[in-house]
Amino acid sequence: MHEASLVMALFDQIDRAVAAHPRARVQEVHVRVGELAGVEPTLLRTAFEAFRESRGRPEAALALIEEPAEWACAKCGDAMARGAVLQCACGGAARLSRGGDVFLDRLELEVPDV
């Protein structure tokens, strides 16, 4: 289950991102998972919930956005139907225009009064 490895990398990213707010509590972690990112959202959530306490972020909630895959012709830009042969009528090859990555988009922090 590589989702566990990804979640460890995610908590490393969170640590770096909140370094400027050492007293902050991370409330929400917004992650975008592409359909062809090779990541199973349910397993990512399970791993996140399993590790958040030990990684010092017990209040953090994972907000997942699932992004469908979209292919388009690299040459003319035409969209390609799901499951179709990835070769455009114009002769161009397809490229994945959306849904191929897993991204940490943003964090919502609660920063106590100083």
Partner: peptide, 24 residues
């Protein structure tokens, strides 16, 4: 910064980074 709700204690931090960025 996110919704303008006036809560001084809420901070939104944009990251926009792949979870694989360190490996990459």
């Amino acid at each position: 910064d996110t919704c303008g709700c006036g809560d001084a204690n809420l901070v939104s931090v944009d990251v926009h980074q792949s979870l694989l960025s360190a490996n990459d």
